[in-house]
């Protein structure tokens, strides 16, 4: 495995990881894609308030982020991490309840779409201000160290857009100072909303920043599931073994708008022809067919199962009551006797 920092691994033809893990990852990717396509159609039908933000094209990176984490590890997913969230253990109902505004969801109508999490289950709930969750992950890992726990890691996701914030910089620096077992996976999907890379950063390669922070840095072809599993899996392993914090920079194209309100008409044809613009899910499926990991009937069965799970989660959430303003306690602190007597 790669041990030197800032090493680029270019794979011409995808090489399967151990079959079981590859297939497990593929299945989560398939579930995420199926779910998000359904969410998009609900949004277009006016059944989701707010926005829908999908991880289309980023599922291979994302699933690898969730797949190698164990019980007790900390996961700080971001906007395009449905596959990783599912692989980490987030129930589909958490997603559909949050998007559809069920009072039974983890956010109970108080927050929506991708701003969800279950901190008690170590899945942090992102805020919109990018970069902020890196240091929060560091703090969670420090708490574990204070408690005397062993054999844990944290994984915090970011995009190349979020990498340009001051908060991200401070978070990376403090992670290295505290020497916590952290993996930061940065997915360069080539656009911060509509802004292309050349107006986001001017360095040669984002992974070069790793050495400046005191991280070990690696790059990965985010369209290649095998590569993602290898590189992110290894990074998690190294962090768990006590190596310095790890930065993995993946290259993909966001195969959607920023949100579903955005037609992404600014994405140039030239970009769409680049190797990183390939669809990781299609490539993974091609590998499955080429190497004959699954027969066609099983693949069909898996698709059917994903669709059934999604339909079930949506139909359950749709039947549930929405939050009611007059039943809401309107209280932003947990210490009830310290609520300000404003009204």
């Amino acid at each position: 495995m790669l041990e030197t920092a800032t090493r680029s691994k270019k794979s011409a033809a995808p090489k399967p990881a151990p079959h079981e893990r590859f297939l497990e990852a593929f299945r989560w990717m398939l579930l995420a894609r199926t779910l998000e396509e359904k969410l998009v159609s609900l949004y277009r039908g006016g059944l989701i308030t707010g926005g829908v933000y999908v991880g289309r094209g980023q599922e291979a990176v994302s699933v690898a982020c969730g797949l190698f984490l164990q019980k007790g590890d900390i996961f700080a997913p971001l906007i395009r991490d449905q596959a990783g969230r599912s692989a980490f253990g987030e129930p589909l109902l958490d997603v559909t309840r949050t998007y559809l505004g069920s009072r039974q969801g983890p956010m109970r109508g108080r927050d929506g779409n991708i701003h969800r999490g279950r901190p008690r289950n170590n899945q942090l709930a992102m805020i919109s201000h990018l970069g902020a969750m890196v240091s929060v992950t560091v703090g969670a890992l420090m708490a574990k160290r204070f408690h005397g726990e062993k054999n844990f890691v944290g994984l915090s996701c970011i995009g190349e857009g979020g990498m340009q914030t001051g908060s991200f910089h401070e978070g990376m620096n403090i992670a290295a100072i505290e020497q916590v077992p952290l993996v930061v996976v940065a997915t360069n999907n080539h656009y911060a909303y509509s802004t292309p890379n050349d107006r986001e950063f001017a360095c040669h390669d984002l992974v070069d920043r790793a050495i400046g922070y005191g991280f070990e840095g690696y790059t990965v072809d985010g369209t290649d599931l095998t590569d993602c599993l290898d590189m992110i899996g290894s990074a998690v392993k190294r962090a768990r073994a006590g190596r310095p914090p790890q930065l993995v920079v993946a290259s993909v194209l966001r195969l959607s708008g920023h949100g579903e309100h955005d037609d992404a008409s600014y994405v140039t044809d030239e970009i769409k022809r680049q190797p990183f613009a390939r669809d990781c899910l299609k490539l993974a499926e091609q590998t499955i067919v080429d190497v004959n990991l699954l027969d066609a009937a099983t693949l069909r069965e898996w698709r059917k199962d994903a669709a059934a799970q999604v339909d079930q989660a949506i139909s359950t959430a749709q039947k549930e009551a929405a939050p009611e303003a007059d039943e809401e306690d309107w209280c932003a602190i947990s210490t009830r006797d310290l609520v300000d007597p404003l009204e």
Binding site: P119, L124, A132, M133, V134, S135, V136, T137, V138, G139, A140, L141, M142, A143, K144, F146, H147, G166, S167, E170, G171, N173, I174, I177, E178
Partner: peptide, 18 residues
Amino acid sequence: TPISEDAMIGTAIGAAMH
């Protein structure tokens, strides 16, 4: 800590919720 007020608070938040 380094001169990183944002990360100081972020770290405290993560530690506090755990």
